[in-house]
């Protein structure tokens, strides 16, 4: 499997962390940021995602956008696994402040407190936030 991907990109691999801080709808940041995640995966980079602040709403289950005429793109987060993007983190404080728990989320995540998250960020080569 790994060899198959090596044919596509032979350059260096860096640790990319995408920090998602905004609600999925209301602004376009979440949707467009997901595009960069997919491209980074296509470049075989070591990709992680963090959801914090209102960004935790991006991966809440049972999203329904019928009433606002905006595409519900939440299924794309489920597809990330197929791009070998499996490191998803959620900030504990953000989740709790919004009355949410891991059971409310549509993908498996690791919940980290803000201190652990800052260590995760420090360990990255590239941090892209929106």
């Amino acid at each position: 499997m790994a060899e198959e991907f090596d044919d596509e990109f032979d350059g260096p691999v860096k640790r990319f962390l995408f920090v998602n801080r905004k609600a999925p709808y209301g602004t376009v940041y979440a949707l467009e940021s997901l595009e960069v995640v997919l491209i980074s995966a296509a470049f075989d980079q070591d990709v992680s995602l963090v959801f914090m602040d209102d960004g935790v709403f991006q991966i809440v289950k049972d999203q329904n956008t019928d009433g606002i005429n905006i595409k519900n793109f939440s299924r794309t987060y489920r597809a990330l696994e197929g791009y070998d993007v499996e490191k998803l983190y959620v900030e504990k404080e953000s989740l709790e402040a919004r009355g949410l728990s891991e059971d409310d989320l549509l993908v498996p995540v690791e919940v980290l407190d803000s201190k652990a998250l800052s260590e995760l960020m420090n360990a990255q080569d590239v941090v892209i936030s929106a």
Binding site: G11, P12, K14, F16, E35, V36, I39, S40, A42, F43, Q45, D125, V126, I128
Partner: peptide
């Protein structure tokens, strides 16, 4: 150009 240019800049 495409988003690949952003990822490449990061690399």
């Amino acid at each position: 150009s495409g988003l690949g240019q952003l990822v490449e800049a990061g690399i």
